[in-house]
């Protein structure tokens, strides 16, 4: 626990220093922080509860659209509509989990793809609700305490707050009753049941938490883009990217998803500016290399090595 709190403190310190060091590269930092939050939130379900979702873009889109439509159609302040979006995301996750958690193996994963795709088609075709295929602009936002929400600096602090919040929740959970229940369910559902844990209930809670947090980040993403199109918001590749980030970083480890986001999104930006045309290709190769040589994910592998070393030392002495 203490190591994790120290880690969180270090993360915050890094976050505070970044804008001073790179004042003109905030967009990429915001993207990384959003992915830190999304991947960590994904991991609550995918890593801790062991249910791989490839439909998390649905929650991103949901959060973004609640904020955008709330502001443009109903004059609702973004923080209220983000909360509303989180509530709806949690409700959808509940309904979805209720229906599908009876399924095991790859079925749940495949159903999440279909879930996000259907939401995408609805967002495109129901223009009265979402502005339709031509998209929605967010032109004006309220200014709480004189803060300009369109300003990259402000957005950076919000993104940092989002990432820290999600990691903080996971750190708190990891030592709580719920965290243990999740791991028990992941390892062996039947044994968990014997220990008095309701696996379905536990997984449902994880899904709801994961969905709601992802939607919160989605709301922020909407403000950063300030122009939403359904093709972009509910994009299958975004779902895939969120899952990839967490898995490469290391599922079920507290810092894995965050590390994954920093390495993948960070290197993607380096490739964008240096290799230009070949960047997505290199991204693919990188993923393959990581899978082949560090299959537990970056952090998972590092932890394993550290533990081994500790045991080896102990055996020597």
């Amino acid at each position: 626990m203490r190591t994790h709190l120290l880690g969180l403190a270090a993360f915050v310190a890094l976050g505070l220093a970044y804008p001073v060091l790179f004042p003109s590269a905030l967009t990429i930092a915001i993207t990384i922080l959003l992915f830190v939050g999304w991947a960590t939130a994904w991991d609550v379900l995918g890593g801790w509860a062991g249910q791989v979702s490839l439909g998390h873009a649905a929650f991103v889109g949901l959060g973004a659209y609640f904020v955008a439509i709330g502001v443009t159609e109903y004059g609702l302040a973004p923080w209220w509509s983000a909360l509303l979006g989180m509530a709806v995301a949690a409700a959808l996750a509940f309904a979805w989990g209720w229906l599908t958690f009876g399924l095991r193996g790859p079925y749940f994963t495949l159903s999440t793809i279909a879930f996000a795709e259907i939401l995408r088609l609805v967002a495109i075709n129901e223009g009265w609700l979402t502005g339709g295929a031509t998209g929605v602009f967010i032109m004006t936002l309220p200014e709480p305490f004189g803060l300009d929400l369109f300003d990259r600096q402000t957005q950076y602090w919000l993104a940092l707050g989002f990432a820290v919040l999600v990691i903080g929740i996971v750190v708190a959970l990891s030592r709580g009753r719920f965290g243990y229940a999740l791991r028990a369910v992941r390892e062996d559902e039947d044994a968990a049941m014997a220990a008095g844990i309701d696996p379905k209930r536990t997984k449902l809670k994880a899904f709801m938490l994961s969905g709601a947090l992802t939607a919160l980040g989605g709301g922020l993403y909407g403000i950063v883009l300030s122009f939403l199109e359904p093709h972009v918001m509910f994009y299958l590749l975004l779902s895939v990217q969120i899952a990839l980030t967490a898995i490469i970083g290391g599922r079920g480890t507290i810092w894995g998803p965050a590390a994954g986001a920093m390495v993948l999104i960070g290197s993607g930006e380096v490739f964008r500016t240096t290799f230009a045309e070949a960047n997505l290709l290199i991204y693919g190769v990188l993923i393959l290399v990581i899978v082949l040589f560090a299959p537990r994910g970056l952090v998972g592998e590092a932890t394993r090595r550290a533990i081994r070393r500790r045991y080896a030392k102990r055996a020597q002495s």
Binding site: S24, A25, T27, I28, T273
Partner: peptide, 21 residues
Amino acid sequence: VWQDDRSEAQSALAAAEQLDA
């Protein structure tokens, strides 16, 4: 000064920020 946006908005925004700077 060429910047690739990888056909996506986030990269375009990062590129625009760099060009602005």
